[in-house]
Design a protein around this nucleic acid. Sequence first.
DNA 1: TATTGTTATACTCTATAACTATA
DNA 2: TATAGTTATAGAGTATAACAATA
Lengths: 159, 159
Amino acid sequence: MPTLVESCARELLDVAPQLMQVFREEMRAARTPDLSTPQFRTLAWLRRHPGAGLGELAECIGLSNPAMSKLVDGLARRGMVARTQSLNDRRRVDIVLTDAGLALLRDCREAAAKAFALRLANLAPAELDTVSAALGSLRALFQPRAHGHGPGQSSRSEA
Amino acid sequence: MPTLVESCARELLDVAPQLMQVFREEMRAARTPDLSTPQFRTLAWLRRHPGAGLGELAECIGLSNPAMSKLVDGLARRGMVARTQSLNDRRRVDIVLTDAGLALLRDCREAAAKAFALRLANLAPAELDTVSAALGSLRALFQPRAHGHGPGQSSRSEA
DNA sequence: TATTGTTATACTCTATAACTATA
DNA sequence: TATAGTTATAGAGTATAACAATA
């Protein structure tokens, strides 16, 4: 017989993709017809980790360095991110969101939040309270650890 | 001031990608070094919708028909799915998971469930109860509707 | 004629290997 | 010598267009 932790993990395994499915549909339909999933994930990561280096970015998104380099090329060409040579280590490139990139990301998040809110509106108040509390717990549990190998100087967990 | 529904949607927007990040890391590290994300999503969809048609599959995964055709080619070549010509409509191709495909999918899910359980084990019993209840609510809310345009004959929501 | 799926072709994405610049 | 990033080349993935078979 499965423990509560185990059955909870199973539920999570079902629910997480469902959430992403809705998220993805929203992205696909509503906006950003010209922003690939890795590009979007990169922008989202940069929002949390401004000034990330290329290698750091590549590892966290799960891409090779050259692929990430080209991906960032595309984002930079479209004015979504800016690259600056680091002063301490001139090999390193600091990558940050531009205002346009931040705005694009915000628009996407707004659209997705609306889609989520639409569904959540069907919950009874008590259920909503439960969900809210649970999300707080999960958020803490699944907080991405900073991967350790970065300089860590600009890794504020809340932006 | 945001309503509870709105703030809850925001939290969901943060938590869902965190969950998928862990999921993805597990997939990337532990297993299926030779299974792309769309392939994995296709297998997962087939588990829930055995006998899906190609077009149905393409739309739900968000791929073009030719791309899905090739993707299914690859899965069939590796024995993960089987294609049979439908009897009612001989244009149509019914696609189902093979035992091997099901086993692969199950292994992936086991690995991811372990990673989730590991984190959930840090919760206090009361918190875990809350999370469990919340996941039940969310699961119902975000249940993928069957998209309406399929034959629907083989859409059992629990496999 | 409309629909289901496949084949043809071109383009993008991604990885491995080789390279440049800095440490 | 080792590290951060880019360029070179090749292979996989994807889309649009054209096609074959069935309804």
